[in-house]
């Protein structure tokens, strides 16, 4: 944990009666792909938003290289992030979207064209972002994350909307980014997506960490009968699915 460059410590947050984060703590180390798994509502996206300074936690800290995100001077050069691929102005072209982001960090057009090339968006660069398929918008979001050549990458469900070829591409990209020594945090609600990608997995449920271990250990521990991460995950999260309402009994669905 001491060499982790993203440290999340004791995050708590509630939205009205709903407890979103209930003591979330973990670290993300350089050189590894850390998978961030858990059912919908486990607090993965909220944790990422808190790390990125978008949401304020009620308690706890999230530090990047020892500093809160909001104190970073050129944040995209230190942390690249992809939260919601559709969070862009649909009328602006893909290249112009990257262009304003580059300007905000003092980067030039050459860097924009380099990341467009890297994610394979050259033919779509002059098209309006609103007309791109979800898979292409994910690639655009990944291009934005890579723009500042950051040592830390945080991606929320980057596999969403990707075709099989795209999924294989992302896996290879994430592996190569970690191999370059970067810290990579990738969330997914599908363990199978992480199986061949992550070195380490943080499993969240009900706003806290249920398991924090290497993929190898998750597969070998306990009963020893687990063949896949999916099975290990299901066993871990059996009781942890969904939101929990404070003071209210678990809703019967």
């Amino acid at each position: 944990m001491t060499d982790a460059c993203v440290v999340v410590n004791g995050l708590r947050k509630r939205f009205g009666p709903t407890i979103a984060l209930d003591g979330m703590s973990f670290g993300v180390r350089p050189g590894l792909v850390t998978g961030f798994a858990g059912p919908n509502g486990a607090g993965k996206s909220t944790t990422m938003r808190v790390i990125l300074g978008l949401d304020a936690a009620d308690e706890g800290t999230a530090l990047i290289g020892g500093r809160p995100y909001r104190d970073l001077r050129r944040p995209l050069c230190q942390v690249g992030s992809l939260l919601d691929a559709s969070a862009l102005q649909p009328g602006r072209t893909a290249r112009d979207h990257l262009m304003w982001l580059a300007r905000s960090q003092g980067l030039g057009a050459r860097r924009v064209d380099a990341v467009i090339e890297q994610v394979g968006l050259r033919t779509a660069a002059r098209r309006r972002a609103g007309g791109l398929s979800l898979g292409m918008r994910q690639r655009l979001g990944i291009a934005a994350a890579l723009l500042g050549d950051p040592p830390v990458l945080i991606m929320d469900e980057p596999f969403n909307g990707m075709d099989p070829e795209g999924i294989i591409w992302i896996r290879a990209l994430l592996r190569s980014l970690a191999a370059e020594g970067r810290a990579v945090l990738v969330s997914s609600h599908l363990m199978s997506e992480l199986q061949d990608t992550a070195d380490h997995v943080v499993v969240a449920g009900r706003g806290r960490v249920i398991a924090d271990a290497s993929v190898a250990r998750l597969l070998e521990t306990a009963s020893g009968r687990r063949a896949t991460l999916e099975e290990a995950y299901l066993e871990l999260t059996r009781d942890a699915a969904g939101f929990r309402a404070a003071g209210a009994p678990e809703a019967a669905l």
Partner: peptide
């Protein structure tokens, strides 16, 4: 408001947290 409507404001604030 255009940024709030599309959610782009989150991209804006990750790029420029101040």
């Amino acid at each position: 408001s255009g940024e709030y409507g599309t959610g782009m404001v989150r991209t804006t604030f990750t790029a420029m947290p101040r």
